[in-house]
Amino acid sequence: MRSAVIVFPGSNCDRDVAVALERASGVAPSMVWHRETSLPPVDFIVLPGGFSYGDYLRGGAIAARSPVMRDVEAKAKSGVPVLGICNGFQVLTEIGLLPGILMRNAGLKFICRDVHVAVADTGSVFTGSYEKDQVLRIPVAHNEGNYFADEATLDCLEASGRIAFRYTTPDGLVSEAGNPNGSARNIAGIYNEDRTVMGLMPHPERVVDPAHGGTDGAGMFAGLVKALAR
């Protein structure tokens, strides 16, 4: 699996995700700087977490308009799977590849801790290695993770099975108690219509090694390699 990690000024999870990808696929990803105008031929693209452009204007807003994103958008539209983690999810909503927006956390505080999410759908290259309703423990680290979309969009996401992950309590209950940031309908991750673009706020790349204190994120990368290996 040939992959690319897009690097913006202020990205800070690019190396973590590169390590996770290399560990899963045996191939180091191409690290592509935001000023590039085209990507090498790849099977998979990651927009990593961080604080691209210092979160100026809105999280992900400037990154979404940077030169490299034109080719990322074109490749996404041609079916190349794209994963946006945390700030990468914000970029995907800002560029319009995913609906809605990530707003300031309801509690107004930066949240940096492990949360629990349930796998709400397994019908994608991102989630195929998990069981439906499986509960994962994955860290979050964000100030703007409060997913918002109008009711019609939320209904559509729900009806079409495009909610990939929901925040839960440790025992898998989708409830207010399990919702760290006020996200509508406990949404932690969603797909586009074709299920080839996914954004999520939790950081699977931070739990791929037992030394991280957990390995619940490893399945996502292993599943991607299995689905996209050539």
Partner: peptide, 9 residues
């Protein structure tokens, strides 16, 4: 429309 505002919210 294209940058300064996010018209979703």
């Amino acid at each position: 429309q294209r940058l300064l505002a996010n018209t979703v919210i």
